[in-house]
Write a protein that binds this DNA or RNA. Sequence first.
DNA 1: GTCAGTGCAAAGCTTTTGCAGCGCG
DNA 2: CGCGCTGCAAAAGCTTTGCACTGAC
Lengths: 148, 148
Amino acid sequence: MPETAEGSWAQLALDAVTSGDRRAGAARRAVIELLAGERCCLGAQDIADRLRGTEHTVGVASVYRTLDLLSAAGLVQRVYVGGRALYEAVVPGGEHHHHAVCERCGSLTPFEDPALERAIDGLADRLGVRVQAHDVLIRGECSGCAGS
Amino acid sequence: MPETAEGSWAQLALDAVTSGDRRAGAARRAVIELLAGERCCLGAQDIADRLRGTEHTVGVASVYRTLDLLSAAGLVQRVYVGGRALYEAVVPGGEHHHHAVCERCGSLTPFEDPALERAIDGLADRLGVRVQAHDVLIRGECSGCAGS
DNA sequence: GTCAGTGCAAAGCTTTTGCAGCGCG
DNA sequence: CGCGCTGCAAAAGCTTTGCACTGAC
């Protein structure tokens, strides 16, 4: 989904996955294509299931292996919610967002907040750690569920 | 570990666990006692293992059941790191902190930051969600590992 | 032609559930 | 002395690993 000046996320992902002596098989291409066209987080099993009926069935193992590769390259963000891992395409160095999960209906809402990012940046110095990444998860009730 | 004016966290936990028609068996007492004397996060399996050699062996199932109870009462905080759940005693309404995990050595460092809390509070209004809780996890390299 | 990638199936882990018996209140 | 709690073991998920085979380069 996200576009950059140099090319689409899908292109970046393909590059990452074919760098070195790596090769781009059908499974990797299929996973990347699906992820590129998706706006919300997906679980590994979801990805395999969605690909099952299409031109090429992809095994769960290949999904995990591809996601590991992309995650290491900083091209997918791993979000743990409710003990499960969800994956989402992100452009490294680009805008980055977090999620609010509704405890009632389970819906996931993405959001971004500069003040939050600033607070975390400031923290890095104070703690004396080299921050590579950070995850924020808000848990509560979404506007739809709060009314009932 | 945390103390309040009304009593220790252990007492609060015991109260929570015996409210209504609930009873405090040996397993619940043992888990609460262990958690009360621990300053860092523990996994469910860790808790069961530590209790194995003591006066009373506690089954993993009882550990999970006790943790669920305490979690629902807001007396333990669940932290997902690396796909596993870790548990930690917290005083509801008291100071509350988050964690930085070192990607190199796996060490977990607690921290608190008012600016971060303010940013999240401000977010609640803007998003239109009723925020019940929030998790923040910083991933990077701790000061010890960053040098090498 | 070589060797990385792939799907399937089996294994590994964490967490949940079922159950007979124990023991708290 | 009833009913909730407990430990054990089995089950249920999610994720990883092993392996023979396919197919990219």
